[in-house]
Amino acid sequence: MKARMEAASKAEELESQLDPEFPSFMKRMLHSHVVRGFWLGLPSHFCDTYLPKNDCTITLVDEKDEEFESKYLAYKKGLSGGWAGFALDHVIRDGDSTVFQLIKPTTFKVRKPTGH
C-alpha cells in the first residue's frame, strides 16, 4: 500500500509539472491493466472531451520517443490491442501510477515516474 501511495504521489508531482496546454491524466495501474486482460480503461470525461468518438489507433510515445500503436475502443473508452506490449516492454506493474499526456489528437506521451 505504501508503494502505491508513493507511486501516485510521484505521478501527481510529474503531472503538475507538465505543460497545461496539453491535457493529461494520471492512471493507477491495477492487476487487470498490466497482468491479466491488459484492458486499460481511460477516464470517461477525458475521452469525451479530447479523444475521437470512433475506434482508432492511439500512438503511445515513451520517454525515449519510441512509438507504439494501441487500439482505442471509443464505446468502451479504453485501450486494448497494443497496450499489453507497451506495458510489458516498459515494466509497468500493478501499483504503478502512470501519466498520460495528449500531445497530438491521437498520441499520448506516457511517463512512469521512477519507483518500482
Rank of each mutant, 00 (worst) to 15 (best):
residue 1 M to K: 07
residue 2 K to G: 01
residue 3 A to T: 04
residue 5 M to T: 03
residue 6 E to V: 05
residue 9 S to E: 14
residue 11 A to F: 08
residue 15 E to C: 07
residue 17 Q to P: 01
residue 18 L to P: 05
residue 18 L to E: 02
residue 19 D to A: 01
residue 22 F to C: 04
residue 22 F to W: 10
residue 24 S to P: 01
residue 24 S to G: 05
residue 24 S to L: 03
residue 25 F to E: 04
residue 25 F to T: 02
residue 28 R to V: 05
residue 28 R to A: 09
residue 28 R to Y: 03
residue 29 M to R: 01
residue 32 S to W: 11
residue 35 V to L: 05
residue 37 G to L: 06
residue 38 F to Q: 08
residue 39 W to S: 04
residue 40 L to F: 04
residue 40 L to C: 06
residue 41 G to R: 13
residue 42 L to C: 09
residue 42 L to V: 07
residue 47 C to R: 03
residue 48 D to Q: 12
residue 48 D to Y: 06
residue 49 T to G: 07
residue 52 P to T: 10
residue 54 N to D: 14
residue 55 D to W: 12
residue 55 D to L: 11
residue 55 D to M: 09
residue 57 T to I: 10
residue 58 I to P: 01
residue 59 T to H: 09
residue 61 V to N: 08
residue 64 K to E: 14
residue 64 K to M: 10
residue 67 E to N: 09
residue 67 E to L: 09
residue 67 E to T: 13
residue 68 F to Q: 14
residue 68 F to T: 10
residue 70 S to T: 11
residue 74 A to N: 06
residue 75 Y to F: 15
residue 76 K to T: 07
residue 77 K to W: 09
residue 82 G to C: 12
residue 84 A to N: 12
residue 84 A to M: 15
residue 84 A to L: 12
residue 86 F to A: 04
residue 92 I to S: 05
residue 92 I to K: 01
residue 93 R to F: 04
residue 93 R to K: 08
residue 93 R to H: 08
residue 95 G to S: 06
residue 97 S to Q: 04
residue 97 S to A: 15
residue 99 V to L: 03
residue 103 I to R: 10
residue 105 P to G: 10
residue 107 T to L: 10
residue 112 K to Y: 00
residue 113 P to L: 06
residue 116 H to F: 11
residue 116 H to W: 08
